[in-house]
């Protein structure tokens, strides 16, 4: 069902949602950049249209809303564990097609990877609704088209944010009551079909063991500083680590947490006994690259990377993941010619 909303009508729509949903969207965090007097676009609670920042890409992805950066799994006292309650209010997330696809990639890892579903992920994820932001032009650093992540069918309500009007297409009936007094107008969301940035992704099978040992990774050993921003800003990075925090004088109580981890960050591959699998940063870049564009695809039939380009946006060393994939493809082509 399509609607045409004025700005006031959109605000009223948000207003009416507040009782049943928490609405999140990209918003300006002024003065909250890492450098002084800089801002950052982050996912925040949205109450009015003016809260939304739609002209710039968010620094972090929306994944933190339902996959918390740090989460208590259970509390224990004398052997009795209790699982914390969560706010079970439904969550509507304003996101672009790349991020909608990214959540599909996370779902595969947490819900379809092996015999067990991740209880903690699932109970939050079930409450998530997708408010799709039409993204027909993208940003300069995006390469979603190359990753087949430019379009999606996964949304509950889609929006085109114009200057004075907002066009709405409601796919989930649960949202119809919130718009029942709004003027109807048929609307079909558009997608982007060409990015300025293009990435050539190798086909599964083209990547061989030779490419693991290739010298192309050495560049990243020299350049990467292992800060982990590419991991924390990535909408599809799903790795976490588990931590036990003891409480009380006798340490018989405590909490078990999980917190995001990242393959570029020191300590990620530390083993009991002191062994570390990937010491060099080039090896970490290789691991990430292979997972994002090769190994995940072998398992799930789609790329893990959705080409949102955040890793390229946030790298303090100006390392471009897009260029890295293209370099790998060049090496494969070169190998074929030999």
């Amino acid at each position: 069902m399509g609607y045409q909303l004025s700005r006031e009508q959109f605000d009223r729509f948000l207003d009416r949602l507040q009782d049943d949903y928490r609405v999140f969207g990209p918003a300006l965090d002024s003065d909250k950049g890492a450098f002084s007097d800089t801002d950052r676009i982050t996912y925040k609670n949205i109450r009015r249209l003016d809260d939304l920042e739609l002209n710039r890409k968010s620094y972090f992805s929306p994944k933190e809303i339902f996959f918390p950066i740090r989460e208590t799994l259970f509390r224990f006292c004398e052997g009795e564990p209790t699982v914390p309650q969560i706010d079970d209010k439904k969550i509507a997330i304003l996101l672009r097609p790349c991020d909608s696809n990214a959540i599909d990639r996370l779902d595969a890892i947490f819900l379809e990877n092996g015999p067990f579903e991740d209880f903690y992920y699932k109970r939050r994820r079930e409450n998530v609704r997708f408010f799709l932001i039409e993204c027909a032009t993208g940003f300069d650093s995006c390469w979603c088209v190359s990753m087949n992540a430019n379009t999606t069918k996964r949304w509950d309500v889609a929006f085109r944010f114009g200057e004075d009007e907002i066009l709405v297409d409601v796919k989930s009936e649960e949202f119809l009551p919130y718009l029942d007094d709004c003027p109807q107008k048929p609307f079909e969301i558009r997608f982007i079909y060409e990015n300025t940035k293009k990435v050539r992704v190798p086909e599964v099978g083209e990547v061989t063991l030779d490419h693991f040992a290739h010298e192309l990774w050495n560049e990243y050993t020299a350049r990467c500083i292992a800060c982990g921003r590419c991991n924390t800003s990535c909408p599809t990075c799903s790795c976490f680590t588990v931590l036990d925090a003891p409480l009380g004088a006798e340490k018989k109580m405590g909490e078990r947490w999980r917190a995001w981890a990242g393959c570029h960050i020191d300590g990620f591959t530390d083993m009991a006994g002191g062994h570390t699998f990937r010491q060099s940063r080039g090896e970490r870049m290789r691991f990430k690259t292979m997972h994002k564009i090769n190994d995940y695809r072998k398992r799930f039939g789609k790329h893990q990377c959705v080409g949102c380009g955040r890793c390229d946006d946030v790298c303090p060393q100006y390392i471009s993941f897009a260029r890295c994939i293209n370099t790998l493809s060049d090496c494969i082509e070169e190998g074929k010619r030999k």
């Binding site: 003065d31 890492a34 450098f35 972090f60 800060c227 982990g228």
Partner: peptide, 15 residues
């Protein structure tokens, strides 16, 4: 603040 990859440590509003 510069080193934090998640924005856990941020700038205070006052300088």
């Amino acid at each position: 603040i510069r080193k934090c990859p998640t924005g856990a440590t941020r700038r205070s509003p006052e300088k």
